[in-house]
Amino acid sequence: MKFLCVECDQQMAFAERDLPGDGTLAATFKCPKCGRVVAMLTNPMETQLVSSLGVEIGGRTVPAEPFETVRANVVTGGPSWSAGAQERLGRVPSFVRGMVKKIYADYAKERGIAEITPSIMDTARAELGLEGM
């Protein structure tokens, strides 16, 4: 999408993008000739549509990360496991792994922890008196 300053017959340049946090988006465009600024405001549904395409208005400032759309948009529920935590869990003998995993997951859930990391595992182990798990 492009913005034209009709008076100057000049294409406006992207200036700023803002996500106020209420699901809406604001993007401002400036006329390089007369300096007039317009803001494009999208409602939550329009914002979601842009986000669902995995693109960013104003261009990407950082490269796409793995699973960006899934991570940002899918309701996953329950804590997730960081790579380090998964690796550590993988070292637990498989016959008790399910049990150990559940202990940490319950611990995280009770405390509202979104991601289990090795350091969370350390804290949980100490708090729950599970040395060696």
């Binding site: 793995p66 997730s80 960081s82 399910g98 995993k101």
Partner: peptide, 12 residues
């Protein structure tokens, strides 16, 4: 995958 944990974004 039995009791493997849920995959997370940081583990491609």
């Amino acid at each position: 995958d039995g009791d493997a944990p849920r995959t997370t974004q940081d583990r491609p």
